[in-house]
Nucleic acid binder design. Structure first.
Length: 684
RNA sequence: GGUCCGGUAGCUCAGUCGGUUAGAGCAGGGGACUCAUAAUCCCUUGGUCGGGGGUUCGAGUCCCUCCCGGACUACCA
């Protein structure tokens, strides 16, 4: 079979945060595939980079009082260190802020310009002349231009689902003042993706480039109607690359991010004497992207469109996976299940997680659940109990003699496992790792009974059985070695240890086809410890405490004493300064929840009736369904914005807002006054 | 509400082209063993394949329909 040349990427982690176990899921999925290809003898280049551009980086650098470059360098070093410890075998890990990327962006840009896809458009934002402010989409309501439904929000119609911009609305109204907004414009550059509609339709719907559910998704969501223009520029201030023929404007981060795959390839070529075009312009090279479902749109529409236009190879396949949940729920900081890679490494061996992910991954887009009890029992039972046990129960019997010179009769066990190789390889090739793991563990389930039946521990008691003992152990260790090779893409360390134990390095899938005989056997050393429940617990505890661990107990400064993480502030930086007068415009009042019920048709909304005392009530819809049971709230005092302009929602009129903190979902925390406050009191 | 993916044993899942009596691992019960990291091996209890209808000689598998769960999207000012 001819050697394949394959370029593989994982999505670029954003430079604004540390690597967590969700991203590890993606890189482990990718790395297993990459290592599998290499083991099969294919030429496989695995590149990645940090995604660095955008407003978030700029703001964070400003807050930390250093340059963006310093921020990027520091975080990149941390990312690389974390990923290396998880045995992710990148050939190159770059940054989208590297000069190679800017150069490639310009090349790409030139082609897109030349193809006539770029147009300058006024971005029409609506301006409220009464309130004196620009209006984000959600502040505008009006009549849907398609179905004429009235009172629809500014971005899409809740009746017919059409998406549009606020300026398309018929009879738009500001929800702030009720005034008719004026259109004000700023110039942005757009890519007219619709020109590529036919190409994208064909590419996405045929040729097995995408998983079937993804192809369906695109057909259902985007390809059924004209593709919208893609707003590709951002005016200064912005952290990114300035657009050469459009000074004062920068490429939007999602333009330069995927080009980072190419830039990282370029860096590798420069270091190793490779030829860039062999990877990005050769029909003989396969290109595989591994991404999470959240960035499907960019990788399956924009990116192929850009590549096509600029004359580069198209992705052979975009492999899309779901999100990681922990114990069945979204990762949560307060529950300690938002686990950073570094926190995991402080307590547990990366091999555990690589195996667990492998045992759960398939080629569908479903979310993957890290159930901690299952994690412990699966790793201990499968890896330690079944696989490593094969070596640990037999190796020391042949420590002095080595393996037999010829491979003894094993009743067909080795041959059976060798024949299974192609089926296992198919499973890996198709990203159905859970199937591969099942097949491989089935081999361990055949090998352990063999040891049981042949009782090496009895053979060793009788010197006359010395040859038999060596033969039995030779068989057991060969069966173990086959398994270790099949598992090598998942567990590179185990493969390495096995090579050392049997004095024959594991380098190729084909080594599963021929028994190893006559080699020395090293003194057996523990290959993998069992997972202890307490280690998992301490990892969770550390995650709960946040990233900033106190260095010592002595004389902690007031800020350190509570060990509060800076994440929340970083996620939502302080707003610009306001005057006292600004503040007094907001009338905050203590209110009592007198009725609360879930809105059945809405996933996040509770309908509340708030009392300000004296019979004065307000109906408010609050997005706190996931965090609170309605019964919990009835009778409770809260703080509300009492003079907020009412907003018509699909389910009724919302006449205010309940004050709460937190990122959303289950992590929403409603504010309450201390005892003594009464409804109607203003909050100053 | 729209789109997509699912529902098989207590749990996690296999089940190929529609074809014998629906399988595995874990957990549970019983026993064996003592080489091995409280590891291993043997035996064993668990299923109306979400419900209903249809096609067929034959349906977990195909079709229709309903129910339930999840994801995406929208509402969360």
């Amino acid at each position: 079979m001819p050697k394949r040349r394959i370029l593989v990427t994982s999505a670029l982690p954003y430079v604004n945060g540390h690597i967590h176990l969700g991203y590890i899921l993606e890189t482990v999925q990718t790395d297993i595939w990459v290592r599998f290809q290499r083991l099969r003898g294919n030429e496989c280049l695995y590149v990645c980079a940090d995604d660095t551009h955008g407003t978030a980086t700029m703001i964070r650098a400003r807050e930390e009082g250093r340059s963006e470059a310093e921020l990027i360098a520091g975080m990149q070093a941390a990312h690389v260190a974390d990923l290396e410890e998880f045995d992710i075998s990148f050939d190159n890990f770059g940054s989208t802020n590297d000069p190679e990327n800017e150069r490639l962006c310009r090349i790409m840009w030139k082609s897109i310009r030349k193809a006539g896809l770029v147009k300058e458009k006024d971005v029409e934002q609506l301006f409220d002349p009464v309130a004196g402010t620009f209006l984000a989409d959600r502040f505008v309501r009006g009549t849907c231009p398609k179905c004429n439904a009235t009172d629809q929000p500014g971005d899409n119609c809740s009746k017919c689902g059409t998406t549009y911009t606020p300026a398309d609305l018929i009879n738009p109204q500001s929800t702030l003042s009720g005034a008719t907004p004026e259109v004000r414009s700023a110039k942005h550059l757009f890519i007219e993706l619709e020109q590529l509609h036919d190409f994208l339709e064909t590419w996405s719907q045929s040729g097995d480039h995408l998983q079937p559910e993804i192809a369906n998704y695109l057909r259902g969501h985007f390809l059924g109607e004209p593709l919208r223009d893609w707003d590709i520029s951002r005016p200064a201030p912005y952290f990114g690359f300035e657009i050469p023929d459009y000074p004062g404007n920068y490429w939007y981060v999602w333009f330069d991010a995927p080009i980072g795959y190419m830039a990282s390839t370029q860096q590798w070529c420069d270091k190793h004497g490779g030829n860039f075009d062999d990877w990005w312009k050769s029909p003989d090279t396969e290109i595989h992207h591994f991404i999470g479902k959240d960035i499907t749109y960019f990788h399956t529409l924009f990116w192929p469109g850009m590549l096509k236009t600029a004359g580069y190879s198209l992705p052979t396949k975009v492999h899309i996976h779901g999100f990681l949940t922990v114990d069945g729920e979204k990762m949560s900081k307060s529950k300690g299940t938002f686990i950073n890679a570094r926190t995991y490494l402080n307590h547990l061996d990366p091999s555990y997680l690589r195996y667990f992910y492998a045992s759960k991954l398939n080629d569908h887009v479903d979310d993957l659940d890290l159930a901690l009890d299952e994690f412990i029992s699966k790793v201990n039972t499968d890896l330690v109990g079944k696989v490593v046990n094969l070596a640990s129960r037999t190796a020391k019997f042949v420590e002095k003699t080595g393996l037999s010179q010829g491979y003894p009769d094993d009743g067909g066990l080795f041959l059976h496992a060798a024949k299974l190789g192609e089926e296992i390889a198919d499973a890996y090739e198709n990203c159905d790792y859970s199937r591969a793991m099942r097949l491989i563990l089935g081999l361990a389930d055949r090998a352990n009974p063999y040891v049981e039946e042949n009782k090496p521990w009895e053979l060793r008691k009788d010197p006359a059985s010395a040859q038999r003992l060596q033969d039995v152990c030779t068989i057991a260790l060969n069966l173990f070695r086959q398994i270790a090779i099949y598992l090598a893409p998942v567990l590179p360390r185990l493969a390495e240890q096995t090579g050392e134990l049997l004095n024959d390095p594991i380098t190729s899938w084909d080594q599963t086809q021929k028994p190893l005989v006559g080699t020395q056997v090293a003194k057996f050393q523990h290959m993998l410890k069992r997972i202890e429940e307490k280690d998992v617990h301490s990892m969770i505890e550390e995650s709960k405490q946040g990233e900033v661990a106190p260095t010592s107990g002595e004389k902690a400064s007031p800020e350190d004493r509570w060990n509060d993480s800076g994440d929340a502030l970083a996620a939502e930086p302080l707003a610009s300064e306001c005057t006292f007068e600004d503040f007094t415009k907001v009338d905050l009042r203590v209110a009592r929840v007198i009725e609360a019920e879930a809105v059945p048709e809405a996933r996040k909304l509770l309908k509340l009736k708030l009392s300000l005392g004296g019979g004065e009530t307000r109906q408010v819809f609050a997005g706190i369904k996931a965090a609170y049971e309605p019964e919990q709230l009835v009778g409770r005092l809260v703080v509300m914005v009492a003079n907020l302009a009412p907003r018509q929602m699909s389910f009724g009129l919302s006449e205010g807002m309940v004050v709460a903190s937190g990122p959303g979902g289950k992590d929403v925390f409603v504010l309450s006054p201390d005892a003594g406050a009464v409804p109607g009191q203003r909050v100053h």
